[in-house]
Design a protein around this nucleic acid. Structure first.
Lengths: 225, 225
DNA sequence: GGCCGCTTCATACCTAGGTATGATCGCTTC
DNA sequence: GAAGCGATCATACCTAGGTATGAAGCGGCC
């Protein structure tokens, strides 16, 4: 639960150029995709197998994966599952020469951006990758905002968090004091600290942040260690 | 924008039995699916073409559509698009005997629950339909809650809505009075009316309702006729 | 041991929010 | 034209929220 690697607020998402990770065991296809993506100014990274991708360091900026379904060792679908389990969720564009419908359906259900049959038109691939990169950019923006929010929340002491939960649930200071067995004055102090630490000047904003964090105490749940 | 058919709060979603709408031009398949779904206690409605479905009245309770891609007149994918455009979005399970990957991908991108190739196993169809009905039930619940919320919001006068927007944005009565060129007393009256009509007893709850309605005045936008 | 941070609380004072009473004005409806 | 509703505002009073000052106990850390 502790977030040691907080990297400070709004960390360097400073307009890094988008990266396309290409995973295919066929060197000719890798080369061809490489030049296709470079032709529209995208950065690329080439991998001949899923393990090669998992072994290296992943891009910091917006990125997506172009993945052949049929690969040595792990299949593309397996890699998709593996990445999801590891909490890595770059958008994936699948391609295949020997795919079938169940395969494509499974991939799409698991959140793939597109599923292209070889041979595909260059433009279709470019469209898919463009969409994938847009999605990743959006995902990164939201995720960064949430990280900042969590970083603020973690500066709160446990008592302050409790108070925040009750206050954003709509309870009056007096009621919070009753539930926590405190004097109203102490609740006010905690509340003031919460407002300051969370960087808000109105209860409305605090409620919105609490909603985003999922920490409103709609009912019960006093235990927050 | 006026919602004449409001049907009162939390309208009769009173445990209506789920309905499966089957659209296929092959009578044998219709009959076979009919008995499959009835065997697990689901209600069915049979249609031999998309137009037949569009012509009739749609179910009130939770429902989904099982749809053949290849149909006389409109194709299954066309029907999917047509329904979406009409704001009807029952979950759809596609089935096909002559489908291809692009078709399945297009269907899944458009939100289909599943895409089964004939012949499929009965259990796969039942699983897909079960999931589809669960999704529809959830969608209906959320949609009903939002309808109730909107119904409450529509009992507000335009001034009250303005005040609600500013108050949920975190402005103080004094500031709202300044922006609206009113005395603080009048703002307080409107604010009190808003709380009563929206059925909340705390600002926190009002903020949450405003968020759900998308009516917070985070910046500007005084014009609300 | 001494310092620091968390927690607790009191007193005091000020601002903000909520409601009741009563009144005026304008528009619409019957 | 009377009744009704929305909107406006005043006065008055009460509750709720916010902050400053000061103080005390407790646990951890150097």
């Amino acid at each position: 639960m502790t977030r040691l690697i907080s990297k400070g607020p709004g960390v360097a998402s400073s307009a890094q150029s988008p990266v396309v990770m290409i995973v295919d065991d066929d060197a000719a296809i890798r080369a061809s995709l490489d030049s296709l993506f470079r032709s529209i100014g995208l950065e690329t990274r080439l991998f001949s197998s899923p393990s090669e991708l998992l072994g290296g360091t992943l891009p910091d900026g917006p990125a997506c994966i172009v993945l052949d379904i049929r690969l040595p060792g792990v299949s593309g679908l397996d890699l998709q599952g593996q990445l999801t389990r590891q909490g890595i969720d770059f958008p994936i564009v699948f391609m295949t020469g020997h795919g079938d419908i169940p395969m494509s359906v499974r991939a799409m259900k698991a959140g793939a951006v597109d599923f292209l049959s070889k041979p595909f038109r260059d433009q279709d691939m470019l469209d898919a990758v463009t969409l994938a990169l847009e999605r990743d950019t959006q995902r990164r923006t939201q995720s960064a905002a949430l990280d900042d929010l969590r970083a603020q929340y973690e500066t709160l002491t446990s008592r302050e968090r409790e108070v925040m939960g009750y206050v954003t649930a709509g309870l009056m200071n007096k009621q919070v004091a009753g539930l926590m067995e405190l004097s109203e004055i102490t609740v006010k102090i905690h509340r003031g600290n919460v407002m300051r630490k969370m960087g808000v000047r109105s209860l409305a904003d605090l409620v919105r942040k609490a909603e985003a964090l999922g920490v409103s105490q709609t009912r019960g749940n006093t235990e927050q260690t």
